[in-house]
Every structure is written in structure tokens, then in C-alpha cells.
Computed example of a mutant assay.
Amino acid sequence: MIPYLFVVAAVIAVIGIISAYKKAHNAILEGEGDTAKIQSKFFLHVAIIEALPIILIIIGFVLAEGQSFTMEDIYIPLAIVIGLFIFNTFIVFSQISQVKHLRQLKQIEEHTLNAARGISFIAIALANAVPIISLVFMIMITS
């Protein structure tokens, strides 16, 4: 049961950050304001979203102390977290390909393409941070 705390933390982080990313990404593409302000708002949302997953990871690590888990206990949680990596990367790269397509049709400017691409790669890193931490902690609690 404890390894699933790490999974829940990863799910909350990935879903939350991807939704914040999509909102910021669309705001950049639609030109709803200064790119720096949109990115600042995105980082603020990410900080708020990551608070609960960090607490869940700490609780999971504290509860796992003194207990022993085998690799068989974490196969399914590991598979779910790895699936989150794939999901996150697929979503972001599909958004990037849409932006490239819009640029080829000359519907957006080059600077908009660069801003959208920049926030996309930042989103990949931020959305994968909690799953990486979850993977490390799940491996650490196995004996």
C-alpha cells in the first residue's frame, strides 16, 4: 500500500502540471499577454500543485521506514509511474508538433513558436520531477 502513495503523488503532479502547462501554452499561442507573465503564472501554479505530492512522498517515506518491501511489491507502482513519463512526454510533444504545424502555415510568429517550445521543455522537466523522485524512493524502500 505504501508504494501507491508515491504513485498518487506522481499522478497528482503530472496531471496538475500538464493542465497548467496546457493553459499557459494556449495563452502564449493566443497572445493573451506578455510571455514572461504567463511563464511566471505557470511557475506559481506548478509550485502550488507540487505541494501535495511532496507531502505524500514524505509521508510514504516515513511510513516505509522499518518495513521491508520486495521488488515484486513495487512492479505495478513502477509500471504506473513509467506510464506517467510516457503520458507526459506524449502530451507535450503533441503540443509542440501542433505549434510547428501552425508555424508552417504561418499562423503564428517565430517568437511565439520559441516561447511555446521553451515552456514545453520546461513542462516536461517539471512534470517528470515528482515521478523521478517517486521512482527513487520506491527503489530505496525495497530490501
Rank of each mutant, 00 (worst) to 15 (best):
I132Y: 07
F6Y: 12
V46Y: 07
F85A: 08
K100P: 11
I124P: 01
F69T: 00
F121W: 08
N26F: 04
P77K: 01
I59C: 03
I59A: 08
S97L: 14
Y21I: 06
I55G: 02
G31I: 01
S40K: 07
I141S: 03
K41A: 11
V81L: 00
H111N: 11
Y21V: 05
K100E: 12
F85I: 06
F6D: 02
T70G: 12
E30D: 07
L105Q: 14
T112E: 14
I58H: 12
A127H: 07
M140A: 14
Y4I: 00
K41F: 05
A27N: 07
I17C: 06
P3C: 01
I58G: 04
A9V: 11
M140V: 14
T89A: 13
F87A: 08
V99Q: 05
I12Q: 09
M71N: 12
N114H: 12
I133Y: 09
K22R: 11
E109K: 15
L44K: 10
F61N: 09
K100S: 14
I80H: 02
L78V: 13
I108F: 05
F42Q: 04
Y21T: 08
N128P: 10
E109T: 13
L78Y: 06
A127S: 15
I17D: 09
Y75M: 12
I82W: 01
I58E: 07
I59Y: 02
I108R: 08
S120I: 03
H25V: 00
K23L: 05
D34Y: 04
G16Y: 06
E109P: 10
A64S: 13
V130K: 12
I49M: 07
G118W: 05
S143P: 05
K23Y: 02
P53D: 08
I133M: 14
T89M: 14
V14S: 05
Y4E: 01
I76D: 02
I124H: 11
I12N: 04
I74S: 00
I80A: 01
L135I: 15
G66F: 04
N114G: 04
S97A: 15
A47L: 11
H101P: 15
Y75I: 15
I54M: 15
Q98A: 12
L84P: 01
F42H: 00
A9Y: 01
S120V: 05
P3M: 01
V11L: 13
P3D: 03
